[in-house]
Amino acid sequence: MILTAEHLAFTYPGRSKPTFSDLSLKISAGEIICVLGPNGVGKSTLLRCLAGLTPSTSGTVKLGEEPISTLPRTEIAKRLALVPQSDETVFAFSVRTIVEMGRAPHLGWFDTPGKDVDALVDDALETLGIAHLANAAYTEISGGERQLVQIARVLVQAPKLMILDEPTAHLDFANQARFLSLTRRLAKNGLAVIFTTHAPDQAFGLADQTLILSPNHPPSIGKTMEMLTESTLSRAYGVPIRLIKSEEHIACVAQVG
């Protein structure tokens, strides 16, 4: 097992009601978990807890057999990568430098990237279709392009688990399709993936398991095709949701009058 979370709970300081509680999940190599739920239910907070960046109020997170709280950040970074919704970068590093930084956990204090890292960076940029941005300033490219750069950085980092917070939010339609295809390929090669989205259709297309966070119900997780029913989605989002099925696809439609 790559990551295990047991009975996680998180409550913001000064609040009596937990953002989420009694949440458990497991993910192994090659598995994909999608996290669904309306705004404000703690999806981003959960990802930060799973990545060891925000301590949970209670419960445990383990990487392999070791509690994540006992591991140094460099060791965590070798096994796990988090791509947030957005990032704040002050310095105008080139796109190539940002992607190259993904290799930092694998280098010593005085090591410098060599030709092997150059090859990894080239491959990642080509894979994401952003090789033409290699010399562009990261601060001057679009939000969608930044998202692709961050995913390229993860490929160079080469973790066992990739955690993505709304990875397609800033991507155009074509790049969304490319990202979903890339995620499938990475999972087939053994990478575990946890991602949040506001599009249940992506869960149908990608996820082995789906975790649903709802403001008025306990967290629930299970096989995607069993979890994503009209009743569970309608209950989670608070509006009637209808599933439209074809031989190859399932689409979700919110029926709002």
Results as ranks from 00 to 15, higher is better:
A236S: 04
R184E: 04
L213N: 00
Y138Q: 12
L107S: 11
I163N: 06
K115H: 01
E88I: 13
T127C: 08
M225I: 06
K245F: 01
E247Q: 15
E247F: 14
E145I: 04
R15E: 00
T139Q: 07
V154R: 10
T4F: 02
L46W: 05
P55F: 07
C49R: 06
S58I: 02
V83T: 12
G40T: 11
V41H: 07
S28H: 12
S58M: 04
M162T: 03
L120F: 04
L3K: 04
R79K: 15
K245L: 00
R185G: 00
R79E: 14
Q147E: 08
K26L: 01
K115Q: 07
D118C: 12
S214P: 03
P159K: 15
S69Y: 12
T224H: 05
A9F: 01
L206W: 01
P105E: 08
D123Q: 13
L233P: 02
R79S: 11
L71F: 12
K223V: 14
G108L: 10
P167Q: 08
V154E: 09
L63A: 06
P67D: 15
E226S: 10
V83W: 09
R153L: 05
T57Y: 02
K188Y: 02
F93L: 13
I27L: 13
V35Q: 02
V149A: 12
G190V: 01
A77I: 07
E6N: 14
R48N: 13
G40P: 07
